[in-house]
Structure formats: structure tokens, C-alpha cells
Amino acid sequence: MNHPPVSSPVLHSTALYTAAAQALAAMLPTEAPVTATLCSGPRPVMSSAGHGAGASFVGELSADVLVQVNAGLLGGTPGDTSALVSGADVLRPALEASTGVLGTGVLSAGPAIQDDALLGDGETVCFDLASAGELIGFFALRIRENAAPEAARATSDAERADVGARLGRINSVEMALTVEIGRTRMSVRDVLNLETGAVVELDRSAGAPADVLLNGRLIAHGEVVVMDQDYGIRITKILDVAEGLG
């Protein structure tokens, strides 16, 4: 059953939503070009016959995004978890392209939204995705307003003390600290052709500092060291919030 049309006004100009939808459509790995058209009828729903991916974006503008494309166009079958590259992996670059038009920010590494809640929200804008004259899926985008800078600076000393007290309660909570020496982008074909002994070139030169990430967020740079027979990381620079988001 489709969601009923929602007539609530969107938060930004239609041009911004359209630009995001077009950027996503251009990155979808289909044989024929994909067009994105603003939905004029009932809202779409998730289908068992499609590959879907959703994520949240936090930055200058924050947003929730969701895309679904007929599984046959991306290879594989719906719900297949045995494949080396999942449907969500294939759709990830398209989501990154769509949120790239919103400015600087970070796209969540995994699903962070409720599909039904997003599609049923009056602030969500939906687009039909079509290729070779046939409807192949949809794209949904909900932009969230960030707090005004003036409001953010108005936090009182008492509120800051309260935040510190609340943070003190989670001092013993463990978080994942990850060291990343570099990244690269590869086509699905190249990934599937990897063999034992293959060398993958990263986007970082030898001797460059490694990134230190806390729960996936960049917090510092450092150099890799060897301690006894184990690897370690010597912190060379702690990043502030703005640098970590860049």
C-alpha cells in the first residue's frame, strides 16, 4: 500500500532537492541513463524486489536520504547477503553524490533511518527514478534545519556544567578506536578480481600520518609504531571538531 500524498511545504527550494536527486541519478550504475522526476502522486514504499540503501547526513545542512532501485538492474537478487558486494554498497556512491550538493558534512556509515517514518514525513521530498522509459525505483530526501549559530553560542555556563556532568556518567563506556593508513576507490569488477598477493595502492604516500577515528569520526593524526610485536599509534595531532568534519 502506498503512503498517501503529503502536502506540507518543504524547508528549502525545490531546486536544492532536485539537484540532489539529479546528482544521485547520475551516479547510479545502470546501463541506460537515469532521470529523477518529482513525485506527483502517492508516495513510494519499499519493495521486496529492489535493492535499497539509506543514511543520515550531518553538516552545513543535515538530511536523511533513502534510495531503492530494482535489484535486477544492479545485479544479484533482493535480500542476498552472500554476495561480496551488497546492493547497499553499490548504491552508497550515489547517496554520497546526492548529499554532496548540501555542502560539507559526513554521511553515516550504515543505516540510520526508519524507512517508513522517512517516507511518511511531510518534510520528505520524493523523486521517481526512471531509465529507458521505465520506473526503476525512487529517491527520498528530508532536509533538517540546524540550530542557528547565535543559538548555539547562547549556551549558558550552567548548561555546560550539566553537559559535563552527564558526560561523566559515560566515562566507562567503550568506543571503537580505528587507525586508517589510507583509502582508495575501486570498481566492483576490480574488487571481484582481487587475488591473494594483489597490491592495492592507497591515496596516501609512505610516511604520511595515519588517521585516528573514534566510532568512525576523525579525531587525530598519528604515526604507526611497533611496540614489542604489536602495532601501535603515536598521536601527533589532535583535531578540533571543525577539522574532524572536513
Results as ranks from 00 to 15, higher is better:
S187H: 11
L11H: 01
N193T: 09
P44D: 02
N171F: 13
R183F: 06
A210P: 11
S205T: 11
P111Q: 12
M46G: 01
A176H: 11
G76S: 03
V69N: 10
L107R: 07
V125A: 08
A161L: 15
G168M: 12
L84A: 15
V173A: 14
D128C: 11
V58W: 09
V65R: 09
G105A: 10
A210H: 07
Q229Y: 01
L129Q: 04
A32P: 02
D162Y: 11
V10M: 00
L102D: 08
A21M: 00
P149C: 13
D64L: 04
R217A: 03
V10S: 08
P209M: 12
V65Q: 09
C39R: 00
T81Y: 09
V241D: 09
G120H: 01
L16M: 03
A20G: 04
E223R: 11
S205L: 07
T236D: 06
M186E: 05
P5E: 04
D228S: 11
E31W: 00
F138R: 03
D230W: 04
L218R: 12
P29T: 03
E243Y: 07
I235N: 03
R144D: 15
L119H: 13
P33L: 01
Q114H: 04
A32M: 01
D115V: 15
V67A: 12
M27R: 12
P4R: 04
G216T: 03
A71H: 00
A154K: 12
M186Y: 05
A15F: 05
R144L: 14
A36Y: 01
A198Q: 09
A53H: 07
S7K: 14
A94E: 12
G222A: 10
D64V: 02
F139I: 13
A94F: 11
A208L: 11
H51S: 06
L119Q: 06
D190Y: 05
L24S: 03
N146S: 14
G232C: 04
A19R: 14
R153A: 15
S82R: 11
A117L: 15
E223C: 10
S62T: 05
A20P: 01
G222N: 06
G168K: 07
V65T: 09
R234Q: 11
R189T: 02
A176I: 14
A19K: 03
I143M: 15
A112S: 13
L118S: 12
S82E: 04
A19L: 06
L218W: 14
T184Y: 12
L107T: 06
A94C: 08
T124G: 13
L192K: 10
A147K: 12
M46N: 05
S172I: 06
V173S: 14
A117T: 13
H3Y: 13
G222E: 05
I235S: 01
V10D: 06
L141A: 07
S8H: 07
R204T: 15
G244I: 08
V10Q: 06
G216S: 01
L202H: 01
R189L: 02
G164S: 15
L74V: 00
E195A: 15
P78G: 04
S98C: 13
P5L: 02
R92G: 02
Q229M: 09
P5V: 04
M27Q: 10
P33F: 00
M227I: 09
A147R: 15
D157N: 14
V10I: 06
L214V: 05
A94G: 12
L24P: 01
V163S: 06
D121Y: 08
I238P: 04
P29V: 09
G222W: 08
V199P: 10
D116A: 14
A176F: 08
V224W: 07
